[in-house]
Design a protein around this nucleic acid. Structure first.
Lengths: 108, 108
DNA sequence: CTTTCATTTCAAGTTCACTTGAAATATCAA
DNA sequence: TTGATATTTCAAGTGAACTTGAAATGAAAG
């Protein structure tokens, strides 16, 4: 992940409604959740939810598939992992404290 | 780190000038860099640099100390580590793929 | 074909982040 | 004190993101 993608991903996450959407989709599991259910869960109008889901989708943070009348959204862990990787190993690489403070170790 | 702090941190990082500032401060090392040098390195006016440094400082991503006429800024790895921790273990916890895709393993 | 449900799209309005340039503050030197 | 350097602060302007509500699209059911 390069700077422009990282910037797009960070911008997509830097919004209350969208962060709430991510949380809802995480707890929904691999089956995902329909747009309407997401709207209900985050307390947004259908129009608002659609707007934010489009932003998340554009950033690659969610995927969607239509099932009959519903459109079901799922979280894309890969993209979040890429952002974490970017922060830890690219943008802010070089400091041991960065790894020490979040309960993780280098693998290799 | 809770949602409001995570949101503030994400918002602070979601800006080209500020992300560039982070990169510059990372490569500057523990000695940090004066505001003027940062402005020069990221191609911003003193006023712009000050604006963005204030935002980063407000978010806890940098610290500053005055040395004579200069104000020297340093990166706060702790805060970035806390954001990574938030993304990996709180907000998006529960998916093995999240850890698998960025070269890291759980410690405990 | 019409209706109903789920979602998106569109246009208009509002808010907020950011830019710009001038003025203010702080520190040091002469 | 005067002047020079480093940085911040302020006020005004701009643009992009977000909200709102109505209209359009797509899919299923009667």
């Amino acid at each position: 992940m390069k700077d422009p993608e990282a910037l797009a991903t960070l911008s997509a996450l830097a919004n209350p409604a969208r962060l709430a959407t991510i949380r809802v989709l995480v707890s929904a599991g691999p089956g995902g959740l329909a747009a309407g259910a997401i709207a209900r869960d985050i307390g947004a109008s259908p129009s608002q939810a659609s707007f934010h889901l489009a932003a998340l989708s554009e950033a690659g943070l969610v995927t969607s598939t239509r099932h009959a009348r519903e459109i079901r959204y799922r979280i894309a862990y890969q993209r979040i992992g890429a952002l974490i990787d970017y922060l830890m190993n690219d943008c802010c690489a070089g400091d041991p404290a960065l790894r020490a403070c979040c309960g993780i170790d280098l693998r290799g």
